[in-house]
């Protein structure tokens, strides 16, 4: 649908994944450009998280091809994906309550000086990243346990910006948040786009999706089931694609919506 002719940051072609007899994904295509937020929506079990985990290197496809920056790549591990510029915020936040913001941002990839950690340099760039996100975190030295749920999510998102990524994958970033915190997180997602990154946003919440996404990709039973321009798509059309209902048939769709 998009008239963008540039090389996409990520392009996935014909992705297929089976878990035993279950076909989680069948011949799925997805592409994301720079400066673009693509929402991946679908009912529970539609394959959203499975697809995201392949971009993050957590899972590997049985068939299909992944291109990053126009070149075919293999993503055997999260580290490999990270090295290629893919950063992921997992659904269950990977943060340590007892460490401060800087320590969490750099966990697992600490900067070193001669003998020790280079805490000064880490804190300096932690503050820069937090500033770029315009997050409301009081200090880079605040322990995580003193932050609100929204602020913690901001730290998780800021964490993706360490190491200059190109693609950010957010798996249900607003899942357990209050309305106010959700709004805060969504502004962070917009800033990621403003920074020129490609964002893949997985969400159940159509309001969130319509607020920040440029494009909506629907998955249903592990297959592509429609692409929508977020600015113009109607709520009913997207919902129909998610549930597989005919747009007019409200009676048939009602039992699917609950989730």
């Amino acid at each position: 649908m998009t008239a963008d002719q540039r090389v996409p940051l990520v392009a996935m072609h014909g992705i297929t994944k089976r878990f035993g007899a279950i076909e989680a994904l069948v011949d799925v295509d997805l592409h994301v450009h720079a400066h673009e937020v693509v929402a991946l929506v679908g009912d529970n079990g539609a394959g959203k998280s499975t697809l995201a985990k392949m971009i993050s290197g957590v899972l590997q496809p049985d068939a299909g091809m992944i291109e990053i920056g126009g070149e075919e790549v293999a993503l055997p591990s999260p580290q490999a994906a990270h090295a290629l510029g893919v950063a992921t915020v997992f659904q269950d936040l990977a943060l340590c309550d007892n460490l401060d913001v800087t320590a969490n941002l750099y966990l697992g990839r600490e900067l070193r000086s001669r003998f020790a950690r280079d805490d000064g340099r880490m804190e300096e760039s932690a503050r820069r990243v937090l500033r770029e996100l315009k997050s409301r975190i009081p200090s880079a030295r605040t322990p995580l346990r003193n932050l609100s749920a929204g602020q913690r999510q901001a730290v998780a998102i800021a964490r993706t910006l360490i190491g200059n990524p190109r693609i950010i994958v957010l798996d249900e970033p607003t899942g357990a948040l209050s309305v106010a915190h959700t709004a805060e997180v969504l502004t962070h997602v917009q800033r990621l786009r403003d920074l020129g990154l490609g964002v893949i946003l997985i969400s159940h919440n159509m309001n969130d999706v319509r607020a920040v996404a440029d494009r909506i990709e629907v998955l249903r039973h592990g297959r592509n089931n429609g692409t929508f321009d977020a600015a113009t798509a109607s709520y009913e059309d997207v919902l129909a694609a998610i549930t597989g209902a005919v747009p007019l048939g409200r009676r048939t769709s009602s039992r699917h919506i609950a989730g």
Partner: peptide
């Protein structure tokens, strides 16, 4: 839209 974009920066 959602919220104002001019929230307080982290650490001036």
């Amino acid at each position: 839209m959602t919220t104002d974009l001019n929230t307080v920066p982290a650490m001036p």
